[in-house]
Design a protein around this nucleic acid. Structure first.
Lengths: 218, 218
DNA sequence: GTTTTCCCTTGACATTCGCCCAGAAAAATC
DNA sequence: GATTTTTCTGGGCGAATGTCAAGGGAAAAC
């Protein structure tokens, strides 16, 4: 009844492909308006389909949102893998990573706004929690990979848990995003500067592999 | 036109008092349902008034929300002042502060959820930004006071900006809140542990005023 | 005691929402 | 080319929303 009849060729792929198209369109609208103000009709208006089709591919508004969140995740997982792979020195990694953080805010600001919006919504909407928790975990692992590579290049150990390291960097990132959205011109440069100053503190020695003591001033 | 007619006695005080009552009631509902799902009728239902009165005291839904946010701020400013005043040693301050952080999540969880909800909403709703930015700044100053007192007691210097320190601690706090709301039993203890491990890293020497190197493990 | 002012209730409004459905259009199958 | 299946359209439903207006009723002012 729910539409899981497969005849012969490859209808499942087609089905998923259309879902992805709709999700992509939905993400664009969600990124602009946020979770609360985005309606299925608005999503459909910004796509090439009518509003009825949303309910054909998604049982529920929540199912659409969750699908979008997972779909969005897929594009984030490998965002900093190049940075990790290309790095040849601790300082080089630090510079590339901090720059990339600022860059993704500049290039994909609305998407990040949406992420924080949805994560907040998950505190009130239990149906969102599983997907949100999974993404948060994935991001934590991503940060952890960066940090481990940085520690390797610096020849030192990390003295933080993966959870703590991610939480703190996420806090910096979020503040920078807020500043960026609010129009503060120095938000992005400030983020890079802060990250370059903070990450060395997460290693054991702290003062040897990087520039002098005072880290982020402004 | 907006209702600034004062006759004789003290109508302004009465007016503001009622606004505060309504704001308090609204905050209770907002904390439970979040910004998106809370309607003026729902707020009124959870109060002793009817839904029409909201528009009598607040021109707009947004004005009500902003008033609520500012009203909520007033109760937060001095939350850790006792901790600062009562502390006699760096370790004592650290323990008291980290415990208080976890305590406020346990006691006022919904209110904090609402705060993060509204802060996220401010990225889509420009009308919220001013109030949100102001609160964020106030919280930053609060954290900075704690950190400065801690540095004084430890006889060391802080090697972070106020913005960076707040952002990172806020990140830890937010993750703990998310875990707490999701039902993770170790979220609160984990926060205290993480904070006790992280804050010493924010000072110059890092390894002398506190316990050994490895800080937050789990 | 009458009038005026203020506070609040109640009901209604236009709009919008998620959801559902009957049927058209398109694609696949025979 | 006919038939079946899949995909999509557009309208409509009930419920909920923010906002507003008309009016009651109590307190204050005269």
């Amino acid at each position: 009844m729910a539409g899981v009849n497969r005849a012969r060729v490859a209808p499942a792929d087609k089905h998923d492909k259309r879902r992805s198209e709709l999700a992509e369109s939905a993400l664009r609208t969600l990124g602009e308006l946020g979770y609360a103000r985005t309606s299925l009709r608005e999503i459909a208006n910004n796509s090439e389909f009518s509003h009825g089709v949303m309910h054909y591919y998604f049982a529920d508004k929540l199912e659409l949102i969750v699908y979008c969140v997972r779909y969005y995740k897929a594009r984030c997982v490998t965002r900093y893998d190049d940075v990790i792979a290309d790095a040849t020195s601790a300082d080089g990694l630090l510079n590339a990573f901090s720059a990339k953080l600022a860059e993704t805010i500049r290039d994909e600001g609305p998407m990040h706004s949406l992420w924080y919006d949805l994560r907040s919504q998950s505190m009130f909407e239990p149906g969102l929690r599983e997907a949100v928790t999974l993404i948060d975990r994935t991001l934590e692992e991503m940060i952890w990979r960066v940090l481990r590579r940085y520690a390797d290049l610096a020849g030192q150990d990390i003295r933080l848990s993966a959870a703590a390291a991610y939480a703190m960097l996420d806090g910096l990132f979020q503040q920078a995003l807020l500043g960026h959205v609010a129009g503060r011109a120095d938000a992005l440069d400030g983020l890079s500067q802060q990250v370059r100053g903070v990450i060395p503190l997460m290693l054991t020695a702290g003062d040897r592999a990087t520039r002098p003591a005072r880290a982020a001033a402004g």
